[in-house]
Amino acid sequence: MTKKSMWSLKFSTAALVLIPAAIGINYLGKLFAELLRLPLWLDSIGTVLSSMLAGPIIGALTGIINNIIYGFTASPVSFVYAITSGVIGLVVGIMAYRGWIASIGRALVLGLVVGVIAATVSTPLNILFWGGQTGNIWGDALFATMIAHDLPLWFASFADSLAVDVPDKVATVIIGFLIFRNLPKNLTHMYDRRSEIDRL
């Protein structure tokens, strides 16, 4: 395994076709979470899976394109978070490659890292675009309490994002991991960039 293969920009057809499928999975994760009235979004399971399967670049592309498409079909506000989604794909892809999906314990750590990084990336966007909120009632209540107590804006906003992102991303990564681990070999082979034709 060389570093070059993780960052390869020569996408296989299978990896490209994975992107729309992963975006669909993102959407359905969200749909089922709403249907079952779960207290989480679970709207980036596909991004996480595509990173685990096809690496950080495809993962990042999935995240970015996901938000662009979501902006076109559901809510323009999601354009702003294309960066966050892209970073999630990137981080999962790199860490998965470095062995952070070898066990459920490691996947839990990966989930925490992703949650914190997602919050870190989202905070400046939240501050720039809407003065610090996330649009999530519980997170924003926390935000309001904190600035009412004169804590710094960036701190309150970061806490808001953390409260919103960490539980969701931990659950997302764990679910992604559970599904990934159980995928059949004949499907995961398609995305294996190392396979070559073995001339007999």
């Binding site: 999975i25 679910i175 599904i179």
Partner: peptide, 13 residues
């Protein structure tokens, strides 16, 4: 959640 989401994932992949 898993029995509902996993078939779509497997199917689409």
């Amino acid at each position: 959640f898993i029995p509902l989401l996993t078939p779509v994932v497997l199917n689409s992949i």
